[in-house]
Amino acid sequence: MWWILAGFTQPLQIGLSAWALLWMLPLTGSIAIVYKATKVGDIRPRPFFKEVVLLFASIVVFMAVAGLVLCCISWVVDNKIGGLMAY
């Protein structure tokens, strides 16, 4: 076990760019697979894959919409309300 763990002693270099947000995708995939595995009655490859893709897409779209809404709120607070309050 120790020699396996020896390969995991140095962290990756991940910058602060927007590309780092893509790390959300594998995690979303895992969540979709495990959640659907607990929900479906019988796991058959094609229907299961379809269900997983649907849930994965739903989560990604919802998070993108949530991100856009937060960006809009941030812009309004910065440029409109902030301008009115003159700070």
Binding site: F8, P11, P26, S30, I33, V34, A37, I43, F48
Partner: peptide, 18 residues
């Protein structure tokens, strides 16, 4: 399905952050 998915997620976390 559950075993592979959870282990990959966990090991990926260790790979990224040590």
């Amino acid at each position: 399905v559950v075993c592979i998915t959870i282990l990959i997620t966990f090991v990926l976390g260790l790979y990224v952050g040590s």
